[in-house]
Simulated scan of single mutants.
Amino acid sequence: MSDTTSASPFAAPPAGGLIAVDLDPRRQLTHRAIAGYLAGYSGATLDAYRLDLRQWATWLDGNGVDILSVQRARIELYARWSEEHGLARSTISRRLSTICGFYRYCSQEAVIDRDPAAYVRRPKIDYESHTLGLDRNELGAFLVQAGLCGGRDHALMCLLALNGLRISEALGADIENLDYQRGHRTLFVHRKGHKTATIPLAPRTATSLDLYIGERTSGPIFLNAEGTRRLDRHAAARIVRRLAKAAGIDKRISPHSLRHSFITAALDAGVPLRDVQEAASHADPRTTMRYDRGRGSLDRHATYIVATFVAGASR
């Protein structure tokens, strides 16, 4: 293989920061533009944006188009192609957001003369969540099965189902993040968008965590089966599927399904929307409302509460 073979612009730099030399100036410019854009992100966001751009570049390459010579029509064709291949509107919207951000960066940095994505139309998002969640009985059966397994699986499932953590938040937590505050067992978590929060743990969750951690005093809370490194999200997804099958649940659920179940259970139980939004760490209340299965219920219509409220004052 030639020494001039280019490194992928989507890969992390190798150890020592050395990057393979590419003598093609146009390819060098592309690599620098992609690397510069991705440099502004980290963690799960970086991984998602890198994947979005890799898929976009692969599609362009298959159509013989240079990524820095794109016209608006090509981006909209990609959106239509994605729809035809069954991608959800939310996924297409996110990919377009990444692409638009990339070209905006290239335009601002004078890598290209104008931004081809400036007026790209985005698909309308269906604000009804279609994630497969568990109802109250299914969630109870699932946690019973997790309790029978005990140890790591029970502790992790409690965090996902009873605290509604994102899988990245749960797996990224360390033992040092556990604490006691004003009589509550708490966990400090790093949330999406560089946010942090200290959350209270239900007694069941706190007990399961303490039993699983045992005598350990530092390091990741959740370890792989060998106990050598942090549990990864793929292994966590397999645990969720295994427990669901053991509980007799025939839905194909994921760790996010448990977060979804927490939010819908909280709303069904009558927890105020603002409190559920805060617990779920949603920046926009409309995101939380997507999970409200009962918001169309006539029994919950505001007219009944207002009529009772006003009648009480007119006596």
Rank of each mutant, 00 (worst) to 15 (best):
I99D: 05
R80C: 06
L51C: 00
D292A: 03
D284E: 09
R290E: 14
A266H: 06
H234Y: 06
P203I: 01
R238C: 07
R50H: 00
L165A: 02
Y78A: 10
E278Y: 08
P203R: 04
A170V: 02
S107E: 15
Q71P: 12
I19E: 15
L162K: 13
L143Q: 02
V120W: 08
R182E: 15
R95Q: 13
A118L: 13
G16V: 05
L211R: 13
G219L: 03
D66L: 04
G140R: 04
P285Y: 04
A206G: 13
L211W: 07
G62F: 00
D135C: 02
V310P: 08
A280S: 10
M289D: 08
P203M: 02
D299F: 05
E109L: 08
F309E: 14
G62I: 01
S2G: 08
F309G: 06
S297P: 11
I249L: 06
Y103N: 03
T207L: 09
L53Y: 05
W59P: 14
V276M: 03
L29M: 12
I92K: 06
D24P: 10
H184I: 05
T45E: 00
G133I: 03
R89P: 06
E109K: 09
S42P: 01
G40R: 07
L148G: 10
A265Q: 14
N224H: 09
I34L: 08
G147M: 02
T287Q: 03
H234E: 06
R300C: 04
T131V: 11
G36R: 10
R50Y: 00
A11M: 06
V310G: 08
S42D: 03
Y291S: 04
Q55F: 07
L134I: 02
D113W: 14
E109S: 10
G101A: 04
D52G: 11
P116K: 13
L139F: 00
A283C: 11
G270A: 03
E278S: 12
A146T: 04
D126W: 03
Y37F: 15
F102S: 01
R238W: 05
E76R: 10
E138I: 04
D232I: 00
P25E: 14
Y304F: 09
S93T: 11
A279T: 05
D126A: 07
A279E: 03
G147L: 01
Q28L: 11
A118V: 10
A118C: 08
G219K: 09
T186A: 08
I263S: 02
D47V: 04
F222I: 04
R238M: 09
R122T: 09
G193V: 01
E83C: 06
L231S: 02
A237V: 01
A283K: 13
T264Q: 10
R252H: 14
R293D: 05
R114T: 15
F309D: 15
D179R: 10
E278F: 07
R80D: 13
A44R: 01
R72C: 07
T228W: 10
I75V: 13
Q277G: 12
T287G: 01
H260N: 03
A236M: 00
R114A: 15
A73T: 09
R74A: 11
P272W: 04
T303M: 12
A35N: 13
D174Q: 14
D250Y: 05
H190W: 11
R252E: 14
